[in-house]
Amino acid sequence: MPIYINLDLQLVKKKMSLTELSERVDITMSNLSILKQGKAKAVRFSTLEAICRELECQPGDILEYKAE
């Protein structure tokens, strides 16, 4: 899929674990894992907003487009 999720990078910058992020944004670990592994087919704006709020970043820092 041409859209890549750079969640790991932002988590490292904020020194936060995936488990802690999951608790803060109230999304299950399984859903966050799906997102992190690039298996998600869609992301809700509410989810994106929550992640950006907790990681103090922009959507473009999480989502990256690379043509295949």
């Binding site: 999304i27 799906i34 298996k39 998600a40 087919k41 869609a42 992301v43 809700r44 989810t47």
Partner: peptide, 8 residues
């Protein structure tokens, strides 16, 4: 259903 399950 698959799309809904894979919507985060």
């Amino acid at each position: 259903k698959e799309e809904q399950e894979l919507t985060v």
